[in-house]
Structure formats: structure tokens, C-alpha cells
């Protein structure tokens, strides 16, 4: 009761938010709220298995998939507010409201009768109850659905597969290219040192110092550089490094 009346307004508001949000990511997040609220409502209606599955599968997998694709497709894209089709919004609202009114009318007019409740069905537990139904009466649908899942997975792979447009460069070609880059632009041909090898501090805004004491530009994010939030290591990197006792060493750099 309480769950329902608390969650119902939230769900409605989030549904509207999902429909009306400008950025797609916001829509996804609103949908996540709706889905979790639904899970709670399932739990309220004596469907614990569905409660779990809703969160794990729907919110956790399907919605995350949505977010992945959103990021692939363009997370910054925002729908413009101008409606290109004349009268589409008005008509859509009208049809939607009409549908809602009719459905609610239909619901209001039906006599439901007494609620039986799932106590008897859940006697052995909700999961065994579901399982017994699934593998007896609905086993054929179950098998077909599994085939569907396999098909869907294979289909997604086929659809998302990208063919190579250029031939894969061989090892020799890679080496030659690297040597050329080094000769022309001075780019280091070998692998870079691992993260943390030359770090002096474990904060991202402090550059690492190369063996000759100069700060390495490669260790700082471009964004930070652009923003200008990089600490300077002038104090430490000026001259040749002296190896001192660990407890006398000063950490970090003076400002």
C-alpha cells in the first residue's frame, strides 16, 4: 500500500521526464528509476523472483546496453525542441490521452472480484512454483525462447560486425612505420613505460618526471593541460636528482 502510493507518483513523474528530457542520457536515467520502482512493486505483489530478475536483467543489462549504445551513437546529441511534423505533438497528446482515458474507464467499469492472492501458488516458494509451470505447461515456449535468444545474439554479432576496409598491416609494416615516425617526427619507437614507473605522486594532476628530471607531458591528460589544473614540479625537477633518506624526502612539490 505505502510502497504503491509512494512509488506511483514518482514513476509517473519519471515517465514524463523520460519522454520530455532533452538529452538521451537523462531519458535513460529516468527509465532506470521507473524500472527499479517497478521491481519494488513486483516485490509488493508477491513476485520476488520477478523483482530480482527485473533489477538484474532489465535495469542491469538492458538499460546498460542502452547506455552503451547511447555512448557509441553520440552521447552529446540532443533532440531539438522544434517539431518538424505539423500537428504531431497535439495529435499524439490527444491520442495518448484518449487511450489513457479509455483504458482507465474500462478498468473502472470491470468488477474484479476478490483477490485470491498467491499464497497457495507460492506454497513451495515462488521460484519452484514458477519453475514447475515453466517446465510443464510452457516448456515449448521456453525452448522457442531459448532459440530466440541464440538467434538474437548471433544476429547482433552479424549486424555489428565491421568488415576491414583496409588489409591488416603485418608486423614488418608496423615496424617500418614506427621507424619512419621516429626519423621524421622523433616519436619514440619503443613501448612506453608502464603507469606509475616515473610517477612522483599518485595524483593525476602531478606530472611524472623522466630520468633526466624533466616532467613528461605524456603523463598528464590533455584535458587537464587545457584547463590549466596541472601542478608544477619545478622544485623537484630542477637539477639532478639526489638520493636521500626516505623520511627526509619531501613529498609532493611546493607550490
Amino acid at each position: 500500500m505505502i510502497a504503491f502510493w509512494t512509488l506511483a507518483p514518482i514513476m509517473i513523474i519519471c515517465a514524463f521526464g523520460m519522454v520530455l528530457a532533452r538529452k538521451a542520457v537523462h531519458s535513460a536515467l529516468f527509465l532506470a528509476v521507473v524500472m527499479i520502482s517497478l521491481a519494488i512493486l513486483y516485490a509488493d505483489q508477491e513476485a520476488p523472483f520477478l523483482f530480482a530478475v527485473q533489477i538484474i536483467v532489465y535495469t542491469g543489462a538492458v538499460l546498460m546496453l542502452f547506455l552503451f549504445v547511447l555512448m557509441l551513437v553520440g552521447v552529446d546529441t540532443a533532440d531539438s525542441l522544434i517539431e518538424t511534423l505539423r500537428g504531431q505533438r497535439a495529435l499524439a497528446a490527444a491520442a495518448g490521452i484518449l487511450l489513457a482515458v479509455l483504458l482507465i474507464l474500462a478498468i473502472a467499469q470491470t468488477t474484479i472480484g476478490t483477490v485470491v492472492g498467491l499464497q497457495r501458488a507460492n506454497l513451495d516458494g515462488n521460484v519452484p512454483g514458477l519453475a514447475s509451470l515453466l517446465f510443464s505447461r510452457y516448456v515449448f515456449a521456453f525452448e522457442v525462447t531459448s532459440a530466440l535468444l541464440i538467434t538474437a545474439a548471433v544476429g547482433a554479432m552479424v549486424l555489428a560486425h565491421r568488415e576491414r576496409l583496409t588489409p591488416k598491416p603485418t608486423q614488418r609494416e608496423v615496424v617500418l612505420q614506427r621507424m619512419q615516425d621516429y626519423a621524421a617526427h622523433g616519436i619514440h619507437p619503443g613501448p612506453l613505460p608502464g603507469p606509475g614507473t616515473f610517477a612522483r605522486h599518485n595524483s593525476v594532476d602531478t606530472p611524472a618526471l623522466l630520468p633526466d628530471g624533466t616532467p613528461s607531458e605524456l603523463s598528464i591528460s590533455r584535458v587537464m593541460r587545457a584547463r590549466g589544473t596541472v601542478r608544477s614540479v619545478a622544485g623537484e625537477a630542477a637539477g639532478p636528482l639526489q638520493i636521500e633518506a626516505p623520511d627526509e624526502e619531501s613529498e609532493g612539490g611546493e607550490e
Binding site: 511534423l85 504531431q88 499524439a92 491520442a95 487511450l99 474507464l105 467499469q109
Partner: peptide
């Protein structure tokens, strides 16, 4: 119009009308 959304609108409108008809018959 060629737009999917127009067709979707007509589908929604049509289904609303069907529900209306069903209700009218029932009630």
C-alpha cells in the same frame, strides 16, 4: 508522409478507436 512517427500516430489513434468501440459495445 514517409515518417515513421506519423504511421505510429495512426496506429495509436486506431487502437484507441478500437478500444472505444469495444467499450461502446460492452457498456
Amino acid at each position: 508522409t514517409g515518417f515513421v512517427r506519423t504511421y505510429a500516430l495512426s496506429m495509436l489513434g486506431g487502437s484507441a478507436l478500437i478500444v472505444l468501440a469495444l467499450l461502446a459495445v460492452r457498456l
